[in-house]
Amino acid sequence: MRQNPSFVMTDVAELRRLIDQNPWVTLVSSTPDGLVASHYAVLLDDTRDDLTVVGHVGKPDDLIHGLGRRELMVIVQGPHGYISPGWYGDVAAVPTWNFISAHMSGVPELLTPEENLAVLDRLVARFESDMPRQRRLWERPNDAEYVHRLEKGTVGFRLTPSRVVAKRKLSQNRSDEVVETIIAELEAGSSPYADARLAGEMRRAHHARRTPS
């Protein structure tokens, strides 16, 4: 991902928030047969305060990726969307795309079956927590035999990235007036590109830009 000094994202707390709020990621590996990509949910490692993530792949994706033997890139995609040149006012302009994304690379560590079960349990709990009637991993009608059989079909991993490239391109190079116009269009505009989440991220980024560190 090509970087631009105006859009660099390095704050660990903000990156952790990005991962936590956008857990559905893309896993990319370079293999002897070419690039391969898979899509899975990950979680921040709850024993760490850095950017370490834990997750799993279904077999045989572990073999396809060479999981644990070669570098893995985890791509986290936050809110993103089209920005119309009409939102800049009566000036020469072209469209662009605002987005937040992070690429985290490293060689993952394979989890033991017990560790993998704990991660699977956390994943289910995380996404069931907002359901009106929750179905946790170990709750009936699931039984222990079923859960352990499920675990055997997956391979868990922990990735502590050795390289992170993150970008928050949210019109930071535009005037405050233009930024407010774009935010208003995203929040309550009549276009098909309205997106309150992206507007919220723009507000956050521009507040950070104006606030002395």
Results as ranks from 00 to 15, higher is better:
residue 180 E to K: 13
residue 44 L to C: 02
residue 169 K to V: 10
residue 192 P to N: 12
residue 107 V to N: 09
residue 49 D to G: 12
residue 107 V to P: 12
residue 55 G to Y: 08
residue 17 R to M: 07
residue 208 A to D: 01
residue 50 D to V: 10
residue 106 G to Y: 05
residue 41 A to D: 11
residue 72 L to N: 08
residue 87 W to E: 15
residue 192 P to I: 14
residue 193 Y to D: 12
residue 132 P to H: 03
residue 186 L to F: 08
residue 45 D to S: 00
residue 187 E to H: 06
residue 95 P to G: 10
residue 176 D to E: 10
residue 15 L to K: 01
residue 13 A to P: 13
residue 154 T to L: 07
residue 137 L to H: 02
residue 204 R to M: 15
residue 103 H to I: 15
residue 121 D to C: 06
residue 116 N to S: 03
residue 90 D to Y: 13
residue 148 H to Q: 09
residue 208 A to Y: 01
residue 133 R to A: 13
residue 25 V to R: 01
residue 212 P to K: 04
residue 179 V to T: 03
residue 103 H to M: 15
residue 4 N to R: 05
residue 49 D to Y: 13
residue 33 D to L: 05
residue 76 V to Q: 03
residue 183 I to S: 03
residue 49 D to Q: 15
residue 81 G to Y: 07
residue 132 P to K: 04
residue 73 M to P: 03
residue 182 I to R: 02
residue 78 G to H: 09
residue 123 L to H: 05
residue 171 S to V: 13
residue 111 L to F: 00
residue 135 R to D: 01
residue 14 E to T: 14
residue 158 R to E: 04
residue 112 T to N: 09
residue 70 R to Y: 07
residue 127 F to Q: 13
residue 133 R to S: 10
residue 18 L to C: 07
residue 97 W to P: 05
residue 37 A to F: 01
residue 74 V to T: 03
residue 132 P to M: 05
residue 84 S to P: 14
residue 8 V to Y: 07
residue 212 P to Y: 05
residue 128 E to Y: 04
residue 212 P to F: 05
residue 4 N to T: 06
residue 67 L to K: 00
residue 158 R to F: 05
residue 48 R to W: 11
residue 141 P to A: 02
residue 175 S to D: 15
residue 47 T to D: 04
residue 61 D to V: 15
residue 65 H to G: 00
residue 18 L to I: 11
residue 204 R to N: 14
residue 51 L to H: 01
residue 162 S to A: 13
residue 174 R to N: 04
residue 155 V to K: 03
residue 11 D to H: 12
residue 95 P to R: 13
residue 111 L to C: 00
residue 5 P to M: 09
residue 175 S to C: 12
residue 183 I to M: 04
residue 135 R to S: 02
residue 105 S to W: 14
residue 204 R to Q: 15
residue 11 D to K: 13
residue 65 H to C: 01
residue 94 V to A: 11
residue 93 A to H: 07
residue 37 A to W: 02
residue 128 E to M: 04
residue 173 N to H: 14
residue 58 G to L: 08
residue 102 A to F: 04
residue 159 L to Y: 03
residue 80 H to M: 10
residue 181 T to F: 07
residue 6 S to M: 12
residue 7 F to L: 06
residue 179 V to K: 03
residue 133 R to N: 11
residue 116 N to G: 02
residue 134 Q to V: 09
residue 79 P to R: 08
residue 194 A to M: 04
residue 182 I to W: 05
residue 185 E to S: 08
residue 39 H to V: 07
residue 18 L to W: 06
